[in-house]
């Protein structure tokens, strides 16, 4: 951005205001988690955390198998993420760069599948999972999510412009098989977009609730199912629930801050050409 002046202070001011707005709900849930739910009635809530967070967190671990849930969620979201990134890049590569009969029609079909309302698929899908003997086990939440239409769409959009045809032709001239071209040319070129797709998929999978609720056993839960259990009883102890959500958000937040640079770069690179 040479030639443009350094940002003025009001730019920082506006951005800071926006970020305060972004952070506030996180902070607020931490506040409730560190106090008791009584603070929710106060007209002017206290601004500093109280001392109850660890006590509330300990209650979370007493109430639900939180470690197991965390482990399950990492396995599920991790597997789903890796597989989605690989398979979507593969399909996206084919749609973007390879010529084959029915390409446009098939691609239109991929987009159309985005419009299938997921809520109603639950019963037929459950019947299928039960037939396969997967109900109650992690594959039931992993297998249906191994690849996603939005991912195929996203990778195709990126690769159309980001991967020059000359590179592919050169590799082909070199005698590379298609799979090698994919592995050595397309995959490396799609890294930025894949980083974003990875994060997107991970978050979707991490936050999925309805399907795991139906298909998994409650004592073998994912994090979201464990959080739901915290709302048991006729009354809801918000301190407990929000302590749980805070605990569940921390790992994500850590990963997010550590990988933030790549993720941001991924979005930036992936979106250049709609």
């Amino acid at each position: 951005m040479t030639g443009l002046r350094r940002a003025r202070f009001w730019v920082y001011g506006l951005l800071a205001a926006f970020i305060i707005g972004s952070v506030f709900p996180f902070y607020w849930s931490f506040l409730v988690a560190s106090r008791d739910s009584g603070m929710m009635t106060q007209k002017v809530p206290p601004l500093l955390p109280g001392g109850n967070f660890f006590a509330n967190a300990a209650r979370v671990f007493d109430t639900v198998p939180f470690w197991r849930a965390l482990g399950n969620s990492v396995i599920v979201s991790g597997t789903v993420t890796i597989s989605t990134v690989l398979l979507c890049t593969l399909a996206g590569f084919a749609f973007a760069k390879l010529r084959f009969r029915g390409r446009n029609g098939l691609f239109l079909f991929v987009i159309a599948t985005l419009a299938v309302p997921t809520q109603l698929g639950i019963i037929p899908l459950y019947i299928a999972m039960a037939d396969f003997g997967w109900a109650g086990h992690l594959p039931a939440v992993i297998i249906p999510n191994l690849v996603s239409a939005i991912g195929v769409f996203w990778m195709r959009q990126y690769l159309v412009s980001a991967l020059p045809d000359e590179l592919i032709e050169a590799a082909r001239m070199d005698g590379c098989s298609m799979l090698r071209v994919f592995w050595h040319v397309a995959l490396p070129a799609s890294r930025p977009a894949a980083a974003f797709l990875g994060m997107f998929t991970f978050m979707m999978s991490w936050n999925d609730f309805l399907w795991p609720l139906v298909v998994l056993d409650p004592e073998n839960p994912t994090v979201q199912l464990a959080l739901e259990r915290l709302q048991s009883g006729y009354y809801v102890d918000y301190s407990l629930v929000l302590a749980g959500t805070t605990l569940a958000t921390i790992p994500i937040l850590v990963v997010f801050v550590l990988l933030g640079r790549q993720i941001v770069a991924g979005i930036m690179a992936g979106a250049v050409k709609g």
Partner: peptide, 22 residues
């Protein structure tokens, strides 16, 4: 022309990781 551009960018993306229950 911001200082620490990545930091600001991560900041605005933060709501994306919020848990739906919360």
């Amino acid at each position: 022309n911001l200082r620490a551009p990545t930091g600001w960018r991560i900041g605005v993306l933060l709501p994306y990781v919020a848990s739906l229950v919360a």
